[in-house]
């Protein structure tokens, strides 16, 4: 495999004998560069956001008081939470059977299933949101088809509604739910289901009492991932609209239209804290998932 290593080995060995080396040494040295990058371009900006949110001229908590007092912003926060919850539940309900079937598929079917999940996963959210706009607008594909079939006489209003935006967001979030579910489900030993069947459990009871509990780490990880991603969703809600802007859209509006950096920073700080808390939850679930079986 290596032609040059043995020839120069004695000299290298001599050099190395002076200070012993092992693969576990030098970790901190290796980490220095990545940590510097993170400190400068990730941690510092986040600290800046937190600092800015307390830097309003009227007082340190002024921005937060203004958010609490502004009906539209308050509603935007509640709406974002509602949307994240709806999208998470819808994605879970749609993903579970798909992940279940893919986790049991083999060969060609497994490959086809993975392609159907991974291609949308890696397709730009801008492109997919655009596709939904094309589908849902007034003279869009869905309306034209329904008109042609005679099911409606007038185009429905689909874009700029909560329903349309939710349908699009769920589609974009589905892979984030399916992939963690898959990794949990592939670790489940199917012989436990056979054991349950032998003991007289019908498929429903096998599912509820045996399979579902075993897949819970994947359900948890997927739900947290989708919830976090939806909380910070910008592209689809900005393009398709809804009854209120999502937090990310509100932040962008505060900055680019109203130039209110402290208020935008306070909104971003709220989003940051929420995301951090949920991310820690996700880490914990993920660790349990990794410990539970040979997931991945």
């Amino acid at each position: 495999m290596t032609g040059t290593a043995p020839r120069t080995a004695p000299r290298a060995a001599q050099r190395q004998r002076a200070r012993a080396w092992s693969p576990s040494k030098g970790g901190l040295l290796l980490l220095a560069a990545p940590l510097a990058l993170l400190a400068l371009f990730f941690v510092a900006p986040l600290l800046w956001v937190l600092g800015q949110s307390f830097a309003a001229p009227a007082g340190p908590l002024d921005t937060y008081v203004r958010i609490a007092g502004d009906g539209a912003l308050r509603y935007s926060l509640i709406y974002t939470f509602q949307t994240a919850a709806i999208v998470t539940v819808a994605a879970l309900v749609l993903s579970y059977p798909v992940a279940f079937l893919i986790s049991r598929a083999q060969g060609r079917w497994l490959m086809i299933g993975m392609v159907f999940v991974l291609v949308p996963f890696w397709t730009s959210a801008v492109i997919r949101s655009y596709a939904w706009l094309v589908l849902l607008q007034r003279r869009g594909v869905v309306n034209e088809m329904l008109l042609a079939l005679g099911l409606i006489d007038r185009p429905l209003r689909l874009a700029n509604t909560d329903l349309g935006t939710h349908v699009a967001m769920v589609q974009i979030m589905l892979p984030f739910m399916i992939l963690p579910l898959l990794s949990a489900m592939r670790g489940i030993d199917l012989s436990v289901l056979r054991a349950a069947a032998i003991l007289g459990a019908n498929p429903w009871r096998q599912f509820v009492n045996v399979y579902l509990p075993l897949s819970m780490p994947g359900v948890g990880a997927g739900c947290v991932l989708v919830f976090i991603s939806t909380l910070g969703f910008y592209i689809t809600p900005a393009l398709l609209g809804g009854s209120s802007p999502m937090i990310a859209v509100a932040i962008e509006q505060q900055v680019s239209r109203l130039l209110d950096w402290p208020l935008a920073s306070a909104l971003a700080a709220v989003l940051l804290v929420l995301t951090c808390a949920l991310f820690m939850l996700y880490e914990r679930l993920n660790r349990r998932l990794a410990g539970a079986g040979e997931a991945r």
């Binding site: 990545p34 956001v49 990310a248 932040i251 920073s265 989003l271 991310f279």
Partner: peptide, 27 residues
């Protein structure tokens, strides 16, 4: 490597992927 706070460091490295980009952009 044999480093302290391995899990926290791993989480820190992964965090930028999870955090909404709008927050990072604002900062």
């Amino acid at each position: 490597g044999a480093i302290p706070f391995r899990r926290t460091l791993a989480a820190l490295v992964i965090a930028p992927l999870i955090l909404p980009q709008i927050v990072l952009a604002i900062g």
